[in-house]
Design a protein around this nucleic acid. Structure first.
Length: 564
RNA sequence: UACCUCGUGGUGUAAUGGUAACACAGGAGAUUUUGAUUCUCUCGUUCAAGGUUCGAGUCCUUGCGAGGUAACCA
């Protein structure tokens, strides 16, 4: 594929390592990676990082490369088909394709069982009758070695018999476990005779009731990798300590088609959010958000519904890089990525989020004109549209100040402001209700300042604001989303036993009714827009109907104006 | 008071023993009928101490700091 020898600018430590392997013709030059989620929840941005890495590697390494999607479904008590489906949808949405290489660890149950039998025969695995508590007590601690189980030296025959009876369902959950026979004194806790099979009388979403013993991750994962001829098994840092066990299994199980190795990278941490499946599940279960695809969630389905694009996510994953340093990435970087993409592609429309009525007292009653507006200044091919303008309009409350702060150059009483692509107006009178709330602004417009006209000898008008015609505007529901938490690291702040939900941002969702130009009536669900001078918005794919769109705020526009 | 891993501007990353750089964020300005975009400029960095070397962010030693690890979870 890469026939141009122009050296890539820089590579992360994993790509560097893989490039060396390819150059050395390790595995005949093949690069086979895998993305191995457990179907026990929805994918989030942390998974996106892993997906971009694993599938990205496949794209980058030409014809001798591929990436498998494998469901690590070894714990039937937590897994559901719903999650399998959503994971496939999310990977596809990000723009990746596993082709024919869709696998399930559960497809290997019979082979994995056979490997376990072979380990028993080699004297490298044994059935332990100890209770869960006994096993924990004899494992030792971080600073002291463990002690051997009284069942550690059972004969091969007895182990074989017991393991077969485990499979046959003769024992209750917790009564017996199959352990690898390694080293109870290892400084690495994972090597102190880890459990590799446990009894679970549970219904599996794919194998049904065929099994009542299930392999542990530490056992199933390396062997599944090897069975699929994976060359590079990439995972996050918390599995570093599992690497020796991974290698132990690859070395001690005979007849494996592949010899994969594992390397680890730092997981993604983002400010003002959480990336733990368990905690995200809690938010969903307790109704603190509206489901896994709530636009405030860092799930792929959540940010998709928020209006993020696959391009933005992939660009973000590229920017954050790949290291072993446990970094904390600013949410701003993610927002930058989506603004960058949407700026190029989103159609512009005028929308007034918090309307104030403006009446142009010198504009003829009943007259309607149509102003031609550019759909996207970043792309001329997107064309133009006509937007109605009449005597009564709405402007945004943020664009008027009765007592303006320093540097404010939008509308003020007695001041002139430009209605974008229409003409300039001067506010003559502020009308209020009995409570002092502004109900209407009486203004006059100046016909000499129409778009295209270049009146000489007038001071340049600093402010330009957007508007919608009152009689023509559509009332639409707009959901203003903000960060989910009020602190940068809700997890950290809450501490070990603390409750992270105390840091939920109570204003993370505001639902308002906005006035918007009529052109959006035909907007399809799932369309991106820029509300000029406001932000990027996305027509909610679930709740929008043709002619009645519902908008989710993806992200605000950057605002250079700071009130002093 | 074990073991493993990691320490580069505010944040995220690059520099593969040879001039410490890029992006985001921040600041200033220009352009702008979006206080957006775009464009300029700017701010600011190798955890510490020794050692090896002509030369160290990079290699070595020690210290300090951070993260991870004791499910029949993944």
């Amino acid at each position: 594929m890469s026939d141009t020898p122009s050296a890539p600018a820089s590579q992360d430590f994993i790509r560097e390592m893989i490039a060396t392997d390819v150059a050395d013709q390790r595995n005949d030059g093949w690069v086979i990676t895998r993305f191995p989620p457990e179907p026990n929840g929805y994918l989030h941005l942390g998974h996106a990082k892993s997906i971009c890495l694993n599938f990205g590697l496949s794209e980058e390494n030409g014809p001798k490369a591929r990436c498998h999607l494998r469901f690590d479904d070894t714990n039937p008590t937590k897994e559901e088909v719903e999650y399998v489906d959503s994971i496939m949808e999310d990977v596809k949405w990000l723009g990746f394709d596993w082709g024919d290489h869709l696998f399930y660890a559960s497809d290997y149950f019979e082979k994995l069982y056979g490997f376990a039998v072979s380990l028993i025969k080699k004297g490298l695995a044994y059935v332990d009758d100890q209770t869960h508590e006994q096993m924990r007590a004899t494992r030792g601690t971080l600073t002291s070695p463990g002690t051997a189980s009284p069942y550690r030296d059972r004969s091969v025959e007895e182990n074989l018999d017991l393991f077969a009876r485990m499979r046959a369902g003769e024992f209750k959950e917790g009564e017996r476990v199959l352990r690898a026979r390694i080293d109870m004194a290892s400084p690495n806790m994972n090597m102190r005779d880890p459990a590799i099979y446990r009894i679970l009388h549970a219904h599996h979403h794919r194998t049904g009731d065929a099994w009542c013993i299930y392999p542990m991750y530490d056992y199933a994962h390396p062997l599944s990798d090897a069975l699929e001829s994976i060359t590079h098994s990439l995972c996050t840092l918390e599995f570093e300590h599992h690497r020796p066990l991974y290698e132990w299994l690859i070395a001690n199980v005979d007849g494996l088609p592949g010899q994969p190795y594992q390397r680890e990278f730092a997981r993604l941490n983002l400010t003002y959010t959480l990336m733990s499946k368990r905690k995200l599940l809690k938010l969903v279960k307790e109704g603190l958000v509206n489901g896994w695809d709530d636009p405030r969630m860092p799930t792929i389905s959540g940010i998709r519904r928020r209006g993020y694009t696959p391009e933005a996510i992939r660009s973000f994953c590229k920017i954050i890089g790949l290291t072993k340093y446990p970094s904390l990435t600013e949410l701003g970087l993610l927002e930058h990525s989506v603004r960058e993409d949407l700026n190029k592609h989103a159609q512009r429309v005028y929308a007034v989020l918090r309307p104030i009525k403006v009446v142009l007292s010198n504009y003829p009653e009943g007259q309607v004109e149509h102003v031609e507006l550019v759909n996207n200044p970043e792309n001329e091919a997107d064309g133009k549209r006509l937007v109605p303008l009449s005597r009564e309009l709405y402007i945004d409350a943020d664009d008027f100040m009765e007592t303006p702060s320093v540097g404010f150059h939008r509308m003020v009483l007695g001041g002139e402001v430009r209605l974008k692509y229409a003409f300039c107006i001067i506010c003559q009178e502020v009308i209020k209700d009995a409570d002092g709330n502004i109900t209407e602004l009486r203004c006059t417009y100046d016909d000499a300042t129409r778009h295209g006209a270049k009146p000489v000898g007038r001071p340049k008008v600093k402010g330009t604001i957007h508007w919608v015609s009152a009689a023509h505007a559509l009332d639409v529901e707009v959901r203003l989303y903000d960060k989910l938490f009020t602190v940068e690291q809700p997890d950290e702040q809450a501490g070990e036993e603390g409750d992270f939900t105390q840091f939920l941002n109570q204003e993370s969702l505001q639902i308002i009714s906005a006035k918007i130009e009529p052109s959006v009536a035909t907007a399809k669900p799932g369309s991106h827009f820029q509300f000029e001078r406001v932000g990027y918005f996305f027509t909610d794919p679930k709740d929008s109907q043709l002619g009645k769109p519902v908008f989710n705020r993806t992200v605000q526009l950057k605002d250079g104006f700071v009130k002093k």
